[in-house]
Design a binder for these strands. Sequence first.
DNA 1: GTCTATAATACGATAGAC
DNA 2: GTCTATCGTATTATAGAC
Lengths: 218, 218
Amino acid sequence: MGRSTQSKLSLKKPRQVRDAEATKKQILDAAEAEFSRYGLSGARTEAIAKGAGVTTAMIYYYFQSKEGLYQAVLQRPAVEMHEVLQQLNLDRLPPEEALNLLVKEAIAYEAAHPHRGILWFQEANQNQGKYFKQGNWQENFAYLIEILERGMAEGCFRQLDPFLTTLHIIGVCNLYFNAYENIKHTRPDLQLLSPEMIEQHTQAAVKFILAGVRNIGD
Amino acid sequence: MGRSTQSKLSLKKPRQVRDAEATKKQILDAAEAEFSRYGLSGARTEAIAKGAGVTTAMIYYYFQSKEGLYQAVLQRPAVEMHEVLQQLNLDRLPPEEALNLLVKEAIAYEAAHPHRGILWFQEANQNQGKYFKQGNWQENFAYLIEILERGMAEGCFRQLDPFLTTLHIIGVCNLYFNAYENIKHTRPDLQLLSPEMIEQHTQAAVKFILAGVRNIGD
DNA sequence: GTCTATAATACGATAGAC
DNA sequence: GTCTATCGTATTATAGAC
């Protein structure tokens, strides 16, 4: 059996317009959705082309190969995330405020790019994190680790393992989106991706995380 | 490009032994690994057969179709998890102890079956949770929700959203395993899947979660 | 119950016209 | 820069021998 038929009738955008950058972006966007769902080997170039409103030949014209396209797709969030983190200037804030802001930004980013967390999950499990290793994720992790270490040093956070706690915090933020398609079935009464529900998730996550790290003898 | 060559030289178990149950289990085990990595449409029946030490014809003999095998693979953890939760008799413990035990058991289960969390993630994103919906996951979620509600009623947990907090707790427990193949590259000095590291993850997770829900005015 | 052989289709990638 | 047509291979699924 094939894959689920997703009748997304792409209403034939007027092609033959010859705008290289626009075409490239359309392919990248369609590829992001396809790769996040099916991973590198599972994604279908034909599906990406259809999603972008072009032919498969365009993919090879711009990205040489399926794997070349995959790499380009992975690059975007790694770079973007790093820029976002840099611009936050987290080291100017006291640890609690920095953590508060980071969690809010992380969830907002996930909500704005719901495919991207899943994309990296596919990279992990299908590709053993080959391209994750090459990206600047170590640096991105470091932002959170530094906040935790600073909080411990200043006494506002309890003694904890910064690395493991970083993973725990990311888990709190991301499961909501990563497992959305399963979770939605447990609460058909809720619109989990509505701004209101995401705001509730954000606030609950912030409280949970801050309570989880705070030094109660403070 | 194909998929990563995984030279698992299956040292030719003596087939032609005609043990139906054993063969069935071998296929299920190999399928669990393959489906968790590639999802329903991405998995290759040939790879499953090779991993089980049989031919693809056996898969169709026992499970009728690729999707039939997929369903059978998903069934096992859903049933097993429910049994584990039932036998814990969590309602006989005070909320904090119940939560402590549940988290430890959940992580131990993940560690013992490292493919299964990922398997359900693939089901979510590649299959829109079609078979998650049919399983008894609502009931499994309920165990955790009940503990949280009981803790709030008794005053040992702070006021929180039981549904969202359930998701947050699951996120803390699972990211470690779900994203392992990426995470391992950020800490090549650690053996993340060693019993020692898993024990540290468990203890840190328990502390983080209990601190996250505890009522400090207690 | 298990295997070999093969039919039918799907897919990645390219050549060449426009 | 974009499309159509197509080559070669990979993949699901089945028929039939043992």
